[in-house]
Design a protein around this nucleic acid. Structure first.
Length: 439
RNA sequence: GCCCUGGUGGUGUAGCCCGGUCUAACAUGGAGCCCUGUCGAGGCUCCGCCCCGGGUUCAAAUCCCGGCCAGGGCGCCA
């Protein structure tokens, strides 16, 4: 069947704004069809929009046959526009309903649907992601992205108020911006290029011009990881600050995390309830333990890690149990941090670096960066990298780049913590992992 | 890439251990009919499934092998 165009119809109200006091008013509401109940002499359907829902009621006696026929054709999740009168009705959900005088079927949903949008029968994550367009209409799923949005807004507003400039660095890059980690090669006209794995080098350079910059953007990693907390495309919140050290940017990070938690706690009560998640705003200051102390804590708990090794996942989980909540691990061995990491002045085996953990999950990492050209070249070489391939980047360090520090925060991981989800795929609209490239 | 577990109607599960009683069950869904107050409506009728390939066997959803896929645990990873 053909479906109607919108034409000159416009909403007069959102569904949730239809109230019993409006009895007798003519309204136009638009949304998607939920439950349809046909009792023979009276037909009901629930119209959902972004605000909530309202019941549309068509009693046979008072409704033209053409409209009754249209209602019989409706399928769940179809888009409709309803012009009608508001009727106060104690039997109706919310005590109010719309009795239609005209209906436009704007688009009919196919049947059967690939999953139950009302969630009465749970679907597996894989099934849900295959039908993500439908899945995203579910209340729980929308709650996740509303929370993500509120958290990001809180972070962005705070950074702007601190005088940060929001920047956008290239996502198509010529060479590896960093050591070893795999990049996605792409074809750039007649040359090979790569998808950027981090805005790191660009944001450092930008401190020379803007002093305080931040970026919210995608990062791409071509690693074949297969876990609940890694994706091949993720959203990173990155900052970089001139005339600052690791400890300064840790203070900023701590403040932002608390603000994000508070914003969600204050503004997303119903979303948290929908998700059945209790959110506790972390207390400040966050514990700051050094890498070496972390190893001692682990050793006492029977987990032995050789000094100088990165923390394997099981050790992180243990640390999450022992410390818990939001905490920093600082002063990492220089050897396991990237080449641009500043060595500690008093012990060059260590670095001015930190990870922000929440329970066992690494949310952010950062530190003081090297701003001196010659030291940077030495560090590149000691990592087995060729300074030649960083030539254009190194140029920036010859023009008096200020000392600077910064961090990168995984927004999708932060969303996991804020929503209590255990799989990062839940927290990304259209996730990209080792096997999933669609939708 | 490794380990564990799994793959049964559109969706979610039971059945598998112990092969036959499975032309596969339950819920939800879909198609249709009845019903003027439903609100996870109710009643009736119907529809729809054993991941792919190979093997064992008189007989395979069930046992074995391989593949693919999924969930989890690792690894990898700024």
């Amino acid at each position: 069947m053909t479906v109607a165009r919108l034409g000159d119809w416009r909403r007069t109200h959102q569904a949730a704004d239809i109230r019993p006091e409006m009895e007798g008013e003519e309204v136009v509401v638009m949304g998607r069809v939920g439950d349809i109940r046909d009792l023979g002499g009276i037909k009901f359907f629930i119209l959902h929009d972004v605000s909530g829902f309202v019941q549309v009621t068509a009693p046979k006696q008072k409704t033209p046959q053409a409209i009754l026929d249209q209602i019989s054709k409706l399928t769940q999740e179809s888009s409709v526009a309803v012009r009608g009168k508001v009727v106060r009705a104690s039997q109706a959900p919310r005590g109010v309903e719309v009795v239609p005088s005209e209906i436009k079927i704007l688009n009919l949903a196919e049947t059967p649907l690939p999953l139950d949008p009302l969630g009465r029968v749970k679907a597996n994550l894989d099934t849900r992601l295959d039908a993500r367009a439908l899945d995203l209409r579910r209340q729980e799923v929308r709650a996740i992205f509303r929370i993500k949005n509120v958290a990001l807004q809180a972070i962005r507003e705070r950074l702007l108020s601190l005088g940060f400039v929001e920047v956008h660095t290239p996502k198509i890059v010529a060479t590896a911006t960093e050591s070893g980690a795999a990049l996605f090669p792409i074809s750039y006209f007649e040359r090979e290029a790569f998808l950027s794995q981090s805005p790191q080098l660009y944001k450092e350079v930008l401190t020379g011009a803007f002093e305080r910059v931040f970026e919210v953007g995608p990062i791409f990693r071509a690693e074949e990881h297969d876990t609940t907390h890694h994706l091949n495309e993720a959203i990173s919140v990155d900052i970089e600050v001139a005339y600052a050290t690791a400890s300064d940017v840790m203070d900023i990070l701590e403040d932002l995390i608390v603000r994000a938690f508070k914003a969600v706690a204050d503004r997303c009560g119903s979303e948290l309830e929908t998700l059945d998640h209790r959110l506790e705003v972390p207390k400040t200051p966050f514990p700051r333990i050094t890498y070496t102390e972390a190893l001692q804590i682990l050793e006492k708990a029977g987990v032995k890690i050789r000094w100088g090794e990165d923390l394997p996942t099981p050790a992180e989980r243990k640390l999450g149990e022992l410390v818990g909540g939001a905490y920093f691990i600082t002063d990492w061995p220089l050897a396991i941090k990237p080449f641009y990491t500043m060595p500690k002045e008093e012990d060059s085996k260590l670095s001015e670096s930190f990870d922000l953990m929440y329970d066992w999950l690494e949310l952010a990492s950062g530190g003081t960066r090297i701003h001196q050209h010659d030291l940077l070249v030495r560090q590149l070489k000691s990592k087995g990298l060729n300074p030649e391939s960083f030539k254009s980047h190194l140029l920036s360090y010859r023009y008096g780049l200020p000392p600077h520090a910064g961090w990168g925060l995984g927004l999708d991981r932060l969303t996991m913590v804020l929503t209590g989800r255990e799989n990062i795929r839940e927290c990304v609209l259209f996730p990209r992992d080792r096997r999933r490239l669609t939708p």
